[in-house]
Amino acid sequence: MSAAPMDDRAESIRMIRDSAAAVAPPGGELKRVRDLRFQDPGFDAGVFRQMGEMGWIGLRLPEALGGAGLGLGEACALAEELGAGLVPEPLIPAMLSAGLLAAAGGKGALPVLLAGEVVVLTAWQEHPDTLEVPGTPDASRRFLPMAAGADFFLVPQQEGGRLALYELSAARSAVTVERTQDGGNLGMLTPNLREATKLADDIGPALAEALDEAALLTGAYLLGGMERAFAMTLDYLRTRQQFGRIIGTFQALQHRAADVKMQIALTRASIESAAAALDAGASGDARRAAVSRAKARAADAAMRVTRECIQLHGGIGYTDQYDVGLYLRKAMVLTNQYGSAALHRRRFMAVSPKVEE
């Protein structure tokens, strides 16, 4: 690859990061996030519309379908910045849905979804901790993030050995919503496809790719969160005094901070490597191995880093009023979305020998 395209790509990623400041201000101001916790729908529809106006929902779609035509390098950079700000709007689930609607030929709610005027969630999951999509007719679909604010649902259903895609209005759906640790919500949908519109006969391959991308973007979001939590912790270690000394000068705390920094660096390397592999056209087992390695690393590291950050803060870190705890709460919710660390390790072990061959 020549230097010019590499420079152009770096500039594109930098601009994406800068644009995130519109909804995730640098410095970690979390008042907006706190105000939305444990409220319905758990996010700001106006901010979601702003995401559409900036082209984020369609960032991965081709320009012919109204998207920006950018790669996973840019998408992961955006997710990372949003994770640093704990942005609650369901951008990653919306991007997944946009990919399926594009695979269906741009039918249904795609134009209004890309504009951020509606929230479309894909109801694909029937069982905990899986990336398999049975598409069982009439089966309940679970773990829908921010379902309290959905306008439409996409429902994959098994028909003749293929996964057909239906679009269902939330107003005509039976949805049960439960609160999550971070103040958001998860929904369970009991689909009534008699009220739905069929959009495509087979979206199985597109859905598998979309789930992989959602898993990788979730890993990037977790990376942003752990980096911000660590930055807050370093600030605390540099200012808090005990026994007349700055606690950051204590060797035991320095060793723990160094370990946290290493976990973050390894996670970044995994996320960026996977994004580069997918942007370069990795497919099949190579694609799955790259994604699973990155998501497993991010999920494990996010829990380890945020817990360690709270402990390094001492007693104040355990109070809900102190912001560092919000990052642990978010990690507790997101580490299992689109596959837990254990699931992705199993998948990596299953496919990596085939990649080496």
Rank of each mutant, 00 (worst) to 15 (best):
R293G: 14
L101G: 04
G224R: 00
I203K: 03
R60V: 09
D323T: 00
G28T: 11
V175H: 01
G149C: 04
G28Q: 13
A214N: 04
G58I: 00
Y166D: 07
A24K: 07
V333E: 04
L222V: 04
V112W: 06
Q39G: 06
F250G: 02
L144V: 14
P191Y: 08
A94L: 06
A286K: 10
S340P: 02
P137I: 05
G58E: 01
N192V: 13
G225P: 00
R32F: 12
H313A: 05
A10S: 15
T176L: 15
K330Q: 10
T306R: 08
E195S: 14
A102R: 05
A252T: 15
G83V: 04
G183I: 08
H255G: 09
M188K: 15
N336E: 10
T319Y: 13
Q158M: 12
D138I: 12
G85E: 04
V47N: 03
G42N: 05
V333H: 00
W124M: 01
A341Y: 08
R347I: 15
I247M: 06
A102W: 04
T233L: 06
R329W: 12
G52T: 01
A10M: 13
L334P: 01
Q242R: 14
A294D: 11
E209H: 09
S352D: 00
P134H: 01
E357T: 11
G184T: 14
G71N: 07
A20G: 04
A200I: 03
Q242W: 15
L253E: 06
S2C: 13
I92L: 05
Q311H: 13
A68P: 00
L78A: 01
D259V: 14
A341W: 07
A147Q: 09
V119H: 11
M262L: 14
L86N: 00
A4G: 09
D129F: 13
C76G: 03
E195N: 13
Q311N: 14
S340I: 02
G184F: 06
V133C: 11
A296Y: 02
M6R: 10
P191F: 03
G42W: 12
A282H: 01
S140Q: 10
A200N: 07
M303T: 14
A77M: 03
L253C: 04
P128G: 05
L96W: 15
R240V: 08
A150S: 03
G315C: 11
E89R: 11
K330G: 09
G183N: 10
G204I: 12
F250A: 08
T319P: 05
A298T: 03
E178L: 11
R14C: 06
R304A: 15
S173F: 05
A280C: 12
S19D: 05
L131M: 07
D285A: 13
E63H: 15
G105K: 12
M6C: 11
A147S: 07
L91P: 00
A350N: 12
E159P: 01
E11M: 08
Q242G: 10
D212I: 14
A21E: 02
G219F: 12
